[in-house]
Design a protein around this nucleic acid. Structure first.
Length: 653
RNA sequence: GGGUCGGUAGCUCAGUUGGUUAGAGCACUCGGCUCAUAACCGAGUGGUCCGGAGUUCGAGUCUCCGCCGACCCA
C-alpha cells in the first residue's frame, strides 16, 4: 500500500466506491462509479497525496442466502464466486484500488461488532419489536397503505409477508439536528447540490429510528458476544456502511485509520439516503469525523432507454472496453455526462467522442508534430526558444491548466475534460497561424523548431492532466515525448511552466484510428445465468413471474383493431406509423417498432391486438396512443392477431 | 398528495452577485492550408432562453401562477 509518505504534513486522500452487492454481476453503472473513483485516486497520487482507494463487495443478507440455496451452493461459495467476478473485472480494467474489501472478511465483521458495541455503550441502540409487511426481494418493510391489494410489494409486485420480530434500533431520530447542522455548515458535503436539498428536506420532515438487526435469517454479522443475543444478525446497511472504516482497520489494528475521514465517497444516486443520513449519523454515534464529500452520480441509459434485463439492453462494460479500448471508454463516460445527471450510452455518441475529441484534436496533433519534426529536423525537438516566440500561447495554455484542479474537486469531470481540450486548440491554431512550412522556406528554422517545442510541451502537459482518465494512452504519449508522468513532472510542467528537455520524436502508430462503423453489431446483455437478479433495488422483480389477480389483468384494456393507414417513419429503422381503428370516433395513432419485420403495405388493412389504455408516449416526436401485441424470439417478431376477423374495438379477454 | 432538480441553437450542455449585440462543443454550409488520422484553421447558418403575469432604468438570471420532464417521499 501507499506508505511512502509518513510526514504529518502530507495530505491524505481516501476515496471509496460503494461495495457492490453480489446479487448481480458488474454492469456499466458499477464500472462508471469505479472508473470515476479510479480517476480521482490516480489524480491524488499524481498530485503527491498519500492515497487510499477502496472498493469491494457487499455479501450479506437474506437475498444472497436464498440465491445460494436455489443453486444448491453454500452461501459462502456463492458469494466467493460473484465477488470474484467484480474483482476480476477491476483487475482487467486496471483499477488502481488499494484494498478490495468483502463484508464476509473476518476483520470487517469484527469491526462491525465493535461499532455496534460502541453505539450501544453510547446509548444509541435499544431493543424493541418491529412489525410490518416485509418484501424479501426488496429487503424492505412497507406500511400497509402502500401495498397493492393489501398484500403485494409496491416496488416489485411480489407477495409480502407480515413480519413481527424483535429488533435492535438505532436512535436515528436523535441525530436530526446534528445532521442538519452538518449539511448547513459544509456546503459541498453532498454533491451535486441539487441532491443535497432533497436530503435536507427529507431530514427536516423528521427521522424515525432505524431497525438495525434481523432474526429472520442467519447470513450476516452476529451481534457482539457480550450482547448475549445470538439470534440477531446485523441488518444490511449497518454492516455495509461500516466497511468504509473497517477497511482502514477500525475495530482492529487501526493501521490506516489516519486516512479517515474520506475525501470523496462515490455512490449512485439510489443509495444517497443511506450515505447522506444513516452513515453520518452512525459516524457521529461512533465519535468519528464525517466524510468531506459524498458524491452521487446518475444512471446510464442505453440509446435513450432505461437499461433493464427484461429489455435485454444492458451494456456490458467489458464488451465495450474490449471493442473500443478501455481508455476510450473511460474518456467517453467521464466526458459525456455532467456529474449527477443521467447519461446515455450509444455507440454513435461513443464513436463521435473517439473520432472527434480523441482522434482529430489529440491524436492528430501528435501526428502533426511527429510529421513536422521528422520532415524538418530528423525528429529532433528542442525547446529553448519556445518562450521567445510563443509566450502568448504558453500563457493561454497555463491559464487553462490552472482552472483544472478545482473542477475535479467539485466533481465537474466533464468540465475538467472540456477545459483540458483548450490547450489542444491553442496548439492546432498555432500551427496554422505560424505555418512552419513557410518558416522553413524562409529559413526561419529557429522559429519552426520552437514551434515544435511548443506543440510537444502542450501535448506533454495535457497528457499529464489526462493521465488519470486515460492512463495507458497517456503513457504512450509520454513515451513518445521521452518524459515520464509522475509527481515531479506534474509539479514542473503543470503547476510550473517547465518545457520538455531536448529529445528525438519517433514515428508511432496513430493513437486513435478513425472508427467508421459501430464495432459491436449488437451489445449482448451481461450473462444472466450467473446471477439472474436485477441490479437496483427498484427493479428486482423479474426473477420468476409475479402472480397477479384477475382484476389486475383486467386493468389492461385490450381491443381488436384494424389498421386503416400505415406509413414508414422516415429516418427510423424500427418504426412504423399506424392509424388503428379500435371502434372509437377517430382511429388511434400508434407508433410501432416493427419495421424490421413488417412493411407498411403488409400491415395495411390487417387486424391487430391493441393495448388501449396505455399512457400515450412520444416516439421520435410522434405521439403513440397504444401498443400492439407481438411476440419476438431469436427468429424475429410476429404480430398477435385475431384468428378470424372481428369488429374493430372488440374487447379481448 | 408533499418535496427536489431541470426545461437555453438540430443535438449535448455553459451562462458567476440581474448589466452592452445570450456562449461552447458536435452537426451543417462556404472559404483557407498541406505538417497531420477526409484530419486542422477561419467565416457563416441557426435561439419567442417552456408559457404567462409581476418587481426593476434593465430579467435567461429575482417573485408568483401554470405546462412538461426526471427523481425522492407518503
Amino acid at each position: 500500500m501507499s506508505n511512502s509518505c509518513k510526514k504529518p504534513s502530507c495530505e491524505k486522500a481516501y476515496i471509496t466506491t460503494p461495495i457492490y452487492y453480489v446479487n448481480d454481476i458488474a454492469h456499466i453503472g458499477h464500472a462508471y462509479t469505479t472508473i470515476i473513483a479510479d480517476t480521482l485516486a490516480r489524480y491524488s497520487r499524481m498530485a503527491g497525496m498519500e492515497t487510499f482507494f477502496l472498493t469491494g463487495t457487499d455479501e450479506h443478507g437474506q437475498k444472497i442466502e436464498e440465491a445460494a440455496k436455489k443453486r444448491g451452493e453454500s452461501t459462502q461459495a456463492y458469494a466467493d464466486k460473484i465477488s470474484a467476478t467484480f474483482k476480476d473485472l477491476w483487475d482487467d480494467f486496471d483499477i488502481s484500488y488499494d484494498k478490495f474489501i468483502r463484508t464476509t472478511d473476518e476483520d470487517h465483521m469484527k469491526g462491525v461488532q465493535k461499532a455496534f458495541s460502541t453505539m450501544h455503550a453510547n446509548g444509541d441502540i435499544y431493543k424493541d419489536t418491529y412489525k410490518g409487511h416485509y418484501c424479501i426481494s426488496c429487503e424492505t418493510f412497507f406500511p400497509s397503505i402502500q401495498l397493492v391489494d393489501d398484500e403485494f410489494c409496491p416496488e416489485c409486485g411480489k407477495s409480502t409477508t407480515i413480519v413481527e420480530e424483535e429488533s435492535y434500533f438505532f436512535k436515528l431520530s436523535a441525530y436530526e439536528d446534528k445532521l442538519l447542522a452538518w449539511y448547513n455548515d459544509t456546503p459541498d458535503c453532498i454533491l451535486p447540490r441539487s441532491k443535497k436539498n432533497e436530503v435536507i428536506r427529507f431530514v427536516e420532515g423528521g427521522l424515525t429510528d432505524l431497525s438495525i438487526t434481523r432474526t429472520s435469517f442467519d447470513w450476516g454479522v452476529k451481534l457482539p458476544a457480550d450482547m448475549n443475543d445470538p439470534k440477531h444478525v446485523m441488518y444490511v446497511w449497518l454492516d455495509a456502511l461500516m466497511n468504509y472504516v473497517t477497511a482502514l482497520g477500525y475495530g482492529g489494528d487501526e493501521e490506516n485509520m489516519d486516512f479517515w475521514p474520506a475525501r470523496v465517497q462515490l455512490i449512485g444516486k439510489d443509495i444517497l439516503r443511506f450515505h447522506a443520513i444513516y452513515w453520518p449519523a452512525f459516524l457521529m454515534s461512533l465519535g468519528l469525523p464525517l466524510p468531506k464529500h459524498i458524491a452521487a452520480h446518475g444512471w446510464w441509459t442505453r440509446d435513450g432507454e432505461k437499461m433493464s434485463k427484461s429489455k435485454g439492453n444492458v451494456v456490458n462494460p467489458k464488451e465495450v472496453a474490449d471493442a473500443y479500448g478501455l481508455d476510450n471508454f473511460r474518456y467517453f463516460m467521464l466526458r459525456e455526462v455532467p456529474f449527477g445527471g443521467d447519461g446515455d450510452f450509444s455507440q454513435k455518441a461513443l464513436i463521435d467522442r473517439i473520432n472527434s475529441d480523441l482522434g482529430n484534436d489529440l491524436g492528430n496533433l501528435l501526428n502533426r508534430v511527429i510529421g513536422m519534426s521528422g520532415k524538418y529536423f530528423e525528429g529532433k525537438v528542442e525547446s529553448s526558444n519556445v518562450a521567445k516566440y510563443y509566450q502568448a500561447e504558453l500563457d493561454e495554455v497555463h491559464a487553462s491548466l490552472d482552472k483544472l484542479e478545482p473542477l475535479l474537486y467539485e466533481m465537474q469531470i466533464h468540465r475538467y475534460l472540456e477545459e483540458l481540450w483548450r490547450p489542444l486548440t491553442v496548439a492546432n491554431k498555432a500551427i496554422d497561424m505560424y505555418q512552419p512550412w513557410t518558416l522553413m522556406k524562409e529559413g526561419r528554422e529557429e522559429e519552426a523548431m520552437a514551434l515544435n517545442g511548443l506543440i510537444s510541451a502542450i501535448l506533454a502537459k495535457v497528457s499529464i492532466m489526462l493521465s488519470p482518465v486515460m492512463p495507458a494512452i497517456c503513457k504512450k504519449i509520454s513515451t513518445a515525448l521521452c518524459f515520464e508522468i509522475n509527481n515531479d513532472t506534474w509539479k514542473s510542467m503543470v503547476k510550473d511552466t517547465t518545457l520538455l528537455a531536448p529529445f528525438t520524436l519517433e514515428k508511432i502508430d496513430p493513437l486513435f484510428p478513425r472508427i467508421e462503423e459501430p464495432l459491436l453489431t449488437q451489445i449482448e446483455p451481461v450473462d444472466v445465468k450467473v446471477a439472474p437478479k436485477k441490479d437496483s433495488k427498484k427493479e428486482e422483480s423479474t426473477e420468476g413471474i409475479a402472480l397477479i389477480g384477475i382484476d389486475q389483468f383486467f386493468q389492461t384494456s385490450l381491443k381488436v383493431g384494424t389498421v386503416v393507414k400505415a406509413e414508414e417513419v422516415p429516418k427510423s429503422k424500427k418504426l412504423l406509423l399506424l392509424q388503428v381503428d379500435v371502434g372509437e370516433a377517430e382511429p388511434r395513432q400508434v407508433v410501432a417498432g416493427i419495421k424490421e419485420w413488417y412493411s407498411a403495405e403488409e400491415m395495411l388493412n390487417t387486424q391487430v391486438c391493441v393495448v388501449a389504455n396505455l399512457k400515450p408516449a412520444k416516439l421520435m416526436g410522434m405521439v403513440s396512443q397504444g401498443m400492439l401485441l407481438a411476440a419476438k424470439d431469436e427468429d424475429g417478431l410476429c404480430m398477435i392477431r385475431p384468428e378470424k376477423p372481428k369488429t374493430a374495438g372488440t374487447p379481448i379477454g
